[in-house]
Simulated scan of single mutants.
Amino acid sequence: MDFTKDLSDDAVLKEIGNRITQYRLNQNKTQVALAQEAGVSSRTMARIEQGDSVQASSIIRVLRALQLAENLDTLIPEPAVSPVQQLKMQGKQRQRASSKSAKSKKEEPWSWGDEE
């Protein structure tokens, strides 16, 4: 299964769990052994493989124990800054996002609305 934007959160978690299960089995490790190696409880390990919601740090620990942590670079690649943005920022790094300002209509003097 490919991860697409149309996949529900539950479906993504289930697929992650399935893939972790397959990597664990390929390395001939039990859930308990992998859980101990990763430093998580065996219940957490079972929850990950079932596709239940768990803390991100638990998944990272399991990926590290399976020697898959380096694949996180593929998951979230380092962002590239556009040359135009670098020029505008004069070498500084952005700290905040800005909202798009609505172009205001020609401002008219304020009135109560009952004058004619």
Rank of each mutant, 00 (worst) to 15 (best):
L25S: 06
S8R: 05
K106C: 00
E70R: 13
Q27D: 04
Q55H: 07
D114P: 00
T44K: 04
Q95S: 12
V54D: 04
A65R: 01
S42G: 01
Q95D: 10
A97S: 13
Q55I: 00
L63K: 04
Q22T: 14
A80H: 08
T4G: 01
A80Q: 14
S101M: 11
A56W: 13
S8I: 02
G17M: 10
A46G: 01
D52R: 06
Q90N: 08
T4Q: 02
S104W: 11
A11F: 06
L66Y: 05
L34K: 04
V40K: 02
G39L: 06
N18Q: 09
E116Q: 07
L13A: 05
S57C: 08
A80Y: 03
G91C: 03
N71D: 02
E15A: 09
W112A: 06
A38W: 03
D2C: 02
Q31D: 01
L87K: 14
K88N: 08
E37V: 03
S99M: 04
R24G: 03
A65W: 02
V84H: 02
V54M: 04
V54E: 04
E78T: 12
F3M: 04
I16W: 05
Q67S: 15
S53M: 02
D6K: 15
G39D: 04
R61Q: 12
N26C: 00
G91Q: 05
T21A: 03
R47L: 06
E107K: 15
Q67L: 08
L63C: 12
G91H: 14
S111W: 13
S82Q: 12
D114V: 09
M89T: 12
S82P: 05
S111C: 02
S8W: 05
M89F: 09
E49M: 07
T21D: 02
N28S: 09
R43T: 14
L13R: 15
P79D: 00
S104N: 11
I76D: 04
Q93A: 12
R64W: 10
D114C: 02
A46T: 14
R24E: 09
S41D: 06
E107W: 11
V32H: 10
W110F: 15
D9Y: 07
S8N: 01
V12S: 06
K106T: 04
R19V: 03
D114H: 15
T44Y: 04
W110V: 07
N71H: 11
T21R: 13
S82H: 15
R19I: 11
A80L: 08
S41V: 13
E37K: 12
I76R: 05
K92L: 08
S57Q: 09
E115Q: 05
D2W: 01
A35K: 09
D9P: 10
K100I: 13
E70W: 05
V54Y: 03
N26S: 09
R64Y: 12
I60L: 14
P79R: 10
R43S: 10
A97V: 10
K14A: 06
L7P: 02
S42R: 10
Q93M: 06
D6I: 09
Q36V: 12
Q90M: 10
K105I: 05
E37C: 05
R61H: 10
V84L: 03
R96G: 01
Y23A: 09
A65D: 09
D2R: 13
V32T: 14
L68A: 11
Q31F: 07
L72A: 06
R64K: 12
D9K: 13
R24H: 07
A69V: 11
G91R: 04
R47E: 05
P79H: 06
V40G: 04
Q36P: 00
K92E: 14
Q27T: 14
S8P: 04
G17T: 14
